[in-house]
Each structure stands twice: as structure tokens, then as C-alpha cells.
Nucleic acid binder design. Structure first.
Length: 114
DNA sequence: GACTTGACTAGAC
DNA sequence: AGTCTAGCCAAGT
């Protein structure tokens, strides 16, 4: 399997998250095959270069329950604003993941044999 | 190969 | 609902 590092895999998956929809770190990790790699996913996004951030909708990735992780910068603020711009409903400080969560839309359309 | 760090998660207070 | 602790995973040093 391509060991391009977890980054490429995370980016590729996050990139195909439909607009107006959000996924959790754990969800992304699970789809990548790393059941408890939620933290690893966060690591990948933390290392997300600006040039990649331009094409990767990192703002569509939130924590469990739709909560936005406090990375200690203007990040959360921008993320929330961007999600809102996509029509995502917010329940206070958390995203209404029950309504915008991935219902299986990100289905990997790659070969059935990965 | 061991230690440290971090955009995580679930459970307890 | 907010805060703390313990457990997990991958990458960096």
C-alpha cells in the first residue's frame, strides 16, 4: 500500500468531503483504516501546509459531536465562519453534526480493492 | 528504538 | 455544560 504517510491519505479523504457536510477526526481515521487514529488525523491537519490548505477543506473536519478544536489561534473562528458560509447549522459553539454529519457520502470511490 | 508532542475521544467530577 | 484524566496513533527529535 502506498506509504505516502498519513498526510496524503487524510488530505485525499478530507478533499472529497461534500460542501455543507462535516466529518469528525474519528470518522476520517476510521475511513482511512485507523480506528483510533483520530489524533493522528489531527496531527496530519496540523502539518497541513498552506498550499494544501487551499485545496483541502480542513474546516469540514471537526471533533466528536461537532465541536471545533481550540488550536490556540484564529483557526476555530475562521473554521466556524467558513462552515456557516456553506450553510452548516450551528448549535451554539458546536456544529449540528447530526444534520450535516457524513451519512456515507464520502464513500471512497476508488477501486474496491484497496 | 525510546521520548515528546498534538486540530482526538470517552469517561468521571 | 465545562474541566480533568487516561488511552491511542503517527511523526519528529
Amino acid at each position: 500500500m502506498r506509504d505516502d504517510g498519513l498526510f496524503a491519505r487524510v488530505y485525499a479523504l478530507v478533499r472529497r468531503i461534500p460542501r455543507g457536510r462535516v466529518a469528525t477526526y474519528g470518522q476520517v481515521a476510521a475511513m482511512l483504516g485507523v480506528a483510533r487514529g483520530a489524533r493522528a488525523v489531527g496531527w496530519a491537519l496540523r502539518a497541513l501546509p498552506e498550499d494544501e490548505a487551499a485545496r483541502v477543506p480542513w474546516h469540514r473536519v471537526v471533533g466528536t459531536g461537532g465541536r471545533i478544536s481550540p488550536r490556540g489561534g484564529p483557526g476555530p473562528e475562521i473554521q466556524r465562519r467558513r462552515l456557516r458560509a456553506e450553510g452548516v447549522s450551528f448549535r451554539g459553539t458546536h456544529v449540528d453534526i447530526g444534520r450535516h454529519g457524513l451519512h456515507g457520502s464520502v464513500t471512497r470511490s476508488r477501486g474496491a480493492s484497496d
